[in-house]
Design a protein around this nucleic acid. Structure first.
Lengths: 139, 139
DNA sequence: GCACTGTTGATAATGATTACTAAAAACGTC
DNA sequence: GACGTTTTTAGTAATCATTATCAACAGTGC
């Protein structure tokens, strides 16, 4: 984290992302930060989420519903439950081997890769039935 | 492809997606279709891209720049070149094993997974240097 | 032809994200 | 701690992608 001033809005934004496990959207972070800093601006939230992501303090990811942020900046994969919509972190799988194989097959230089899993989490499996509508909800 | 009328706009939209290798956005498809059907509406393009994706004729995917469509509806992974921005199809890797392992570790039922690779394609490697700005361009 | 159903084009509405700007805060220097 | 400089902020307008609405139209079967 090179020269990066930790102003109060910035710190609260970072804490909001880290203190939840929902891989929040900007709107979610905004609602959270507003509890402690009611006059914060939505633009400030967006701006700082991008700044913090550029610094590598946060990770940024796009999914079907838009932009999401992740307080865990270490490499890891994601599992999205189609029942409740929650996104869980899962340990990243193999490293070099897959990249080397793809490179050999295609001539691409693979610098990075990320896997997304989709399915049903333990809770939703126990409840049986099909995905509840609330699963589609954004947060 | 169950009962799905192949109207002229719909057919042209499908062809536009299939006749390119760029994994186009809706705007790109719109521009293409307009060449042959100048009065087509952007809403028609969006509507039918969704319809065709729902039918399984096309695949829909979200990335940092928004929605993209893929004429290849078979399971496969993607390699995104950070140099030129192009997205290449790559064969999907192993199937069952990885899902089973994750299920055992977490209790999740994994129904599907998808891997995104990032790196530099053959052309961009040969040209050396760092990513060209045009790489960020949308199409 | 006539009723019925699905599709279209045009445009308005929505929602997320970004740009802009004047004021406030943080900093370094004296 | 006042002063000039730089960064950051709040507030708001602007932009952009996507979706909704709806009247007109086309296709089908009777």
């Amino acid at each position: 984290m090179r020269g990066l001033r930790l102003t109060r809005p910035r710190r609260l934004i970072l804490e909001a992302v880290r203190d939840t496990d929902v891989h929040p959207t900007a709107a979610f972070v905004y609602r959270r930060v507003r509890r402690r800093l009611p006059r914060v601006s939505l633009a400030t939230v967006y701006r700082n989420l991008r700044v913090l992501a550029a610094e590598g303090v946060l990770a940024e990811r796009a999914d079907a519903g838009g932009l999401r942020f992740d307080g865990n900046a270490e490499p890891h994969d994601h599992f999205t439950c189609i029942g409740c919509g929650r996104i869980h972190d899962v340990p990243v799988r193999r490293g070099r081997a897959v990249r080397a194989r793809l490179a050999a097959q295609t001539g691409f230089e693979v610098l990075n890769h990320r896997t997304e899993y989709f399915g049903r989490c333990g809770d939703c499996r126990r409840q049986g039935g099909r995905p509840s509508p609330k699963g589609q909800r954004r947060s």
